[in-house]
């Protein structure tokens, strides 16, 4: 006998539909979540501690004032100080092992832009912006955390606030960031 219940009212169809919806939404939420959390680093580098002992940002991220990329430090830079420090815990031992073997630490970049956006640190440093304007308060972070909402509107907002209308013509020009 043919069932008289319409297709969309059958419990089996509804359950399957709900499951499919849940899986899709779960995937979307998960995908967004993974772009918002700090990626796993080879060594959980404590920014707060290094700033606390007086290291300047530009000591390790040397390129910011002169070029597009601030850069990540090489093992030599770490080893310069760390070979004089007793490896008290596991992380320091990791640093020591990289340093002793002369291998590069595979740091994962956190503050990244998509390929179609060209960002250069140099003009921003020249305009006397501080690092925490965009990268957050690193004295409160261990590993660097991606900052939320760094989209084009956020860039333009700041450009508009920091400039006169004449300057904003250049600072809002497409070719300033996209080419």
């Amino acid at each position: 006998m043919k069932s008289s219940i319409p297709l969309w009212q059958r419990s089996s169809v509804r359950i399957v539909g709900a499951l499919v919806l849940l899986i899709i939404m779960g995937g979307a939420v998960g995908g967004i979540y993974y772009t918002q959390i700090p990626p796993e680093q080879p060594i959980p580098f404590p920014h707060n501690f290094h700033i606390g002992v007086g290291a300047q940002c530009s000591y390790c991220h040397t390129g910011a004032a002169t070029g597009p990329n601030a850069g990540l430090p090489t093992t030599d830079k770490c080893w310069g100080c760390h070979q004089q420090i007793e490896p008290r815990n596991d992380n320091l031992k990791l640093v020591a092992s990289y340093g002793a073997e002369g291998k590069q630490i595979p740091w994962v970049p956190v503050a990244i832009q998509p390929d179609f956006v060209v960002f250069s640190h140099q003009p921003h440093i020249n305009a006397e912006l501080t690092c925490e304007t965009c990268h957050g308060d690193l004295t409160q972070m261990t590993v660097a955390e991606p900052q939320k909402g760094q989209n084009m509107g956020w860039c333009l907002d700041c450009h508009q606030k920091m400039s006169t209308p004449e300057e904003f013509v250049l600072l809002s020009d497409c070719a300033t960031c996209h080419y």
Partner: peptide, 11 residues
């Protein structure tokens, strides 16, 4: 600095 950037840019 941005002033100089913008000034040049318009010419």
């Amino acid at each position: 600095m941005t002033e100089l950037l913008a000034k040049e840019a318009h010419d």
